[in-house]
Amino acid sequence: MALQELHYTFRATEPQPFPLGWSHSGVVGSGDMEVMFERCMLDGEIRFKVVTPVRGFERVWEQVLGRFVNETNLADVSVEINDNNATPVVVLMRLRQALKEARKEAEG
């Protein structure tokens, strides 16, 4: 079966900008993923595109990504994920890591 593309849009309650113009992190290993953030004008929205071989987890993705938006309030950023069977815990951890790295780089 072909790869699946999922799209999600969220709106943060107190919009925060992504700290860099763009950033990339992670490796698409087995059970892992990569993520790319790109700052762009989205009228306060945050958009996700997920490319994954796994089917039937649309709702879980929505919950995990929504949780990430709730805890970070990121807005005006496009997020692309290439997934290779990462579990929800790994997805959330990778997203947090990526943001932490981006903040560190923005300061540094």
Binding site: M1, A2, H24, V28, E38, V51, P53, N82
Partner: peptide, 21 residues
């Protein structure tokens, strides 16, 4: 030709295999 150029495989999606940028 880094991740932002998105030069991923054109063959893997049809096979349902994960791609990398």
């Amino acid at each position: 030709a880094g991740p932002r150029d998105r030069m991923s495989s054109p063959h893997l999606p049809a096979l349902g295999e994960a791609i990398e940028f």
